[in-house]
Design a protein around this nucleic acid. Sequence first.
DNA 1: GCCAACGTTGGC
DNA 2: GCCAACGTTGGC
Length: 156
Amino acid sequence: MAPVRRYWLMKSEPDVFSIDDLESQGRTSWDGVRNYQARNFMRDEMQVGDLVLFYHSNAKPPGVAGLARVCTRAHPDVSAQDPRSEYHDPKASPDNPIWMMVDVAFVAKFPAFVSLDRLKQEQILADMLVLRRGMRLSVQPVERDHFERVVELGNK
DNA sequence: GCCAACGTTGGC
DNA sequence: GCCAACGTTGGC
């Protein structure tokens, strides 16, 4: 039975890590997620091969900058155990890492950046999670129809 | 810089 | 378990 591919949106502040950074590095461990719901998506539902909308948050303008692919299952985010890391969590330990991450690989930078304003103009995307008021989740599922439409917009 | 929305913490 | 206080997110 072929696995059902899922689609995701992951937020990154481009001042910290942008789609260009991912392109030059090829792949990265998605460290620093410190929200349980976001962690649970990575830990419980992400599969190798899932595709990801790479979203630039806290940016001018905010929006979807490109595509990435999940290339590992979830594994411990060891930055939580590093006292010198800005992502340090004193409750995390080798026996109880608490926080998890996946690795993602660069797939493409969109020829046309899909701004948040542009997303809001699309009727078909009206109930996309990222457009919901107060939606702060940095890792969120995306419906296939929504994913495909965003990719169309990005490739225009 | 503002601030609404949300998640977490901790006293009770 | 409640909830006020606090910290963070993230668009504007």
